[in-house]
């Protein structure tokens, strides 16, 4: 078991999330699991957006600058 961090959320929101889980047909076992899934999903989207290294980014910015785009 890895280390966990606890986060505060409104009780009502927690309960809505619980209802969501029940109605979504057993995909998630707990609110913890749902939160973890959604956050991971978001992070992977975020990572797709940054498919270049900082060096690449710098190079591209240089080119855009030389062309007058920025």
């Amino acid at each position: 078991m890895g280390e966990k961090v606890t986060i505060e959320i409104p009780k009502e929101l927690y309960e809505k999330a619980q209802k969501y889980i029940q109605e979504s047909g057993g995909e998630f076992k707990s609110v913890n699991e749902l939160v973890e899934f959604v956050l991971n999903e978001l992070l992977s989207e975020e990572e797709e957006e940054t498919v270049f290294t900082p060096e690449e980014e710098e190079k591209i910015k240089q080119r855009l600058k030389s062309l007058g785009y920025i």
Binding site: G2, E3, K4, V5, T6, E8, I9, E36
Partner: peptide
């Protein structure tokens, strides 16, 4: 405004 807690893995927390 009652609150409750959820827990997520530490690495995920750090990335967020």
């Amino acid at each position: 405004g009652e609150y409750t807690t959820v827990s997520i893995p530490k690495p995920l927390y750090e990335r967020i």
